[in-house]
Design a protein around this nucleic acid. Structure first.
Length: 557
RNA sequence: UGAGCUAUGGUGUAAUUGGUAACACAGCAGAUUUUGGUUCUGUCGUUUUGGGUUCGAGUCCCGAUAGCUCAACCA
């Protein structure tokens, strides 16, 4: 992919890989992206996807997609499908599609081997007893009374567990390690629990299911994963990951951890995202305000922009919070190059060109994309009555304002120079209409006398305007770090009440042909894309991101 | 009986592995511009702290401090 060829220094994972490659001449790397199919992927996963698949591409290796489906109570094929769709949309393809559940038979055999080696036992304690027995962070745990059962008894019990002789929670299989270990995970971790639950792939074949710690390393090993890359919170799991592989004597996969992605003005935890959806603070997983991949797609982000973002945030081990502005920069950078320009008025104010003949109309040529001549030009109709943006007129213009005001002249983009002569107000004093005159010699380009006008505003012919619903999105949260909650509050208290504003816009008629997913720059306003809610007789646009607005910034000061 | 991980401008990430701390985003100022967009130029500002080793330390050593992770039959 083009952005991978750019020169830049190596991140720490790439350094590890280059060392590995130089120490193993002729070897190739194998990575994997291992989501649990229990929810939708978000931008944090996109970073992981770009890392795992990107590394494989860059170093001539392979990357598998492996669903970590060891907990049937939370998982579903619905999520499997959405995950695959998102990865493909991002522009990646996996070598092998695998499931941890593909390995249930092998995992069961290995568990019996560990029992035979005296390294695992069946524990009859209740969940509560096990929890208490584990001790705490500063006190050692206690050994289970069932810890020293014979190999034969453990083997028999484990098989009975598998055969369904026990109810959920009655027994577990535990690794026999060290109940006083400073790493809590080594205090006889649970390897298998009983779950009489149908699995989305194995159906009712199994009623015992392996835990993450027991399944993950072995699954990596089976696939000969050379570099098992995960996020920092799994750091404490690595010794256990290595322990199982060592005890079994199987292919030595190795785990490396990087810091997960955080972005300002949003949350990234699956739990919180689920709550936003379930409690209808947003309209589903693909609500464009969500940080999910499907939401970004719907909002109008391009795969290339998300990839570029993943590349720019870097890979390191320290906790980080990326400025949302970087994500926005990435999508603007891409869309500026690729999105065709159109004119649309979001907050309309009618303008009558009083000296333009009634009933007359004409067309002006407009450049589709100044960054890309190959996409040509289009024709935009003009008439006596047009709409302009309310913000493009001010009765009392502040210093530095060079749009329209009474007596001032502006350029209508691609069209005439107009001068405002009169403001028409309703009985309450609201501006309802502007009366302007035009310079008939200024159409499209130069002015008759070479005078230059600084202000250029966009417009739409009233007679030809196409109405569209535009959904203007802002940050979901009003607080930069909604995860940092003050006493007595929750992250929900920081939701931005204005994260979605819906307006009816007047669009130039060429937009009538726009299809779902099409992306445009509405000149001087922002990037927009056609939402799937669009029907034959109603156009709906999502605002992907605004244009940079230096003027608005100046005004805030 | 606590263990592990991490500390570099506002935010991220680098630093040829001990040799002038740089790049991007954000900010600020200006130029260009029929988008207050784009582009271009300039500018602001950085090694948590205290010792030590060394001609020389962001990098090595020792000690503090701060942040994060771990006590699900979740992943």
């Amino acid at each position: 992919m083009e952005e991978n060829t750019k020169e830049r220094s190596l991140n720490f994972v790439e350094e590890i890989i280059e060392n590995y490659l130089s120490e193993h001449p002729g070897a190739h790397i194998q990575t994997r992206f291992p989501p649990e199919p229990n929810g939708y992927l978000h931008i944090g996963h996109a970073k992981s996807i770009c890392l795992n698949f990107g590394l494989a591409q860059r170093y001539g290796g392979k990357c598998n997609l492996r669903f970590d489906d060891t907990n049937p109570v939370k998982e579903d094929t619905e999520y499997v499908d959405s995950i695959k769709e998102d990865i493909k949309w991002l522009g990646f393809d996996w070598a092998l599609e695998r499931y941890a559940s593909d390995y249930f038979d092998q995992l069961y055999v290995w568990a019996k081997q560990l029992i035979e080696k005296g390294l695992a036992y069946v524990d009859d304690q209740t969940q509560e007893e096990i929890r208490l027995g584990r001790g705490t962070i500063s006190e050692p745990g206690r050994e289970s009374p069932w810890r020293n059962r014979s190999v034969e008894e453990n083997l028999r019990l484990f098989e009975e567990m598998k055969n369904g002789s026990y109810a959920d929670g009655e027994k577990v299989l535990r690794a026999k390690i060290d109940m006083a270990h400073p790493n809590m995970l080594f205090r006889d971790p649970i390897m298998y629990r009983i779950l009489h639950t149908e699995h989305h792939r194995t159906g009712n074949k199994w009623c015992i299911y392996p835990m993450y710690d027991y399944a993950h390393g072995e699954s990596d090993s089976i696939e000969h994963i050379t570099h098992s890359i995960c996020t920092l919170e799994f750091d404490v799991h690595r010794p256990l990951y290595d322990w199982f592989i060592a005890q079994l004597g199987i292919f030595p996969s190795h785990q490396y951890e990087f810091a997960r992605l955080n972005i300002t003005y949003t949350v990234m935890s699956k739990r919180k995202l689920l709550q936003l959806v379930k409690e209808h603070f947003v309209n589903g997983w693909d609500d464009p305000r969500m940080p999910t991949i499907c939401a970004l797609r719907r909002k109008g982000y391009t795969p290339a922009s998300v990839r570029a973002f993943a590349e720019r945030v870097g890979v390191a081990k320290r906790d980080n919070v990326i400025d949302l502005s970087l994500l926005e920069y990435c999508v603007r950078e891409d869309l500026n190059r690729t999105a065709e320009r159109r004119m649309a008025v979001i907050d309309p104010l009618k303008v009558v060109i009083t000296d333009y003949p009634e009933g007359k109309s004409e067309c002006f040529e407009a450049v589709n994309n100044p960054e890309d001549e190959t996409v040509g030009k289009r024709s935009v109709p003009f008439g006596r009555e047009i709409y302009i943006e309310r913000a493009d007129f001010m009765e009392v213009p502040p210093k530095g304002y060079y749009r329209l005001s009474v007596g001032s002249e502006v350029r209508l983009r691609y069209s005439y120079l107009i001068k405002c002569q009169e403001v028409v107000k309703d009985t309450e004093g609201n501006i309802v209409e502007l009366h302007c005159t035009h310079d008939p010699l200024s159409g499209g380009g130069s002015s008759s006398d070479g005078r230059r006008v600084k202000g250029v505003i966009h417009w739409v012919s009233a007679a030809d305007a196409v109405k569209a619903e535009v959904r203007l999105y802002d940050n979901l949260f009003a607080k930069e770090s909604p995860d940092d909650v003050e006493e007595g509050k929750t992250f929900l208290d920081y939701l931005n009440p204005d994260s979605l504003v819906v307006k009816t816009a007047y669009c130039e008629p060429s937009l009538l042909c726009a299809k779902v997913g099409d992306k445009f720059q509405f000149e001087r306003v922002g990037y927009f894309c056609v939402d799937p809610d669009t029907t034959a007789d109603s156009l709906v646009f999502n605002r992907t991101v605004t244009l940079k607005d230096t003027w608005a910034k100046l005004q805030k000061k």
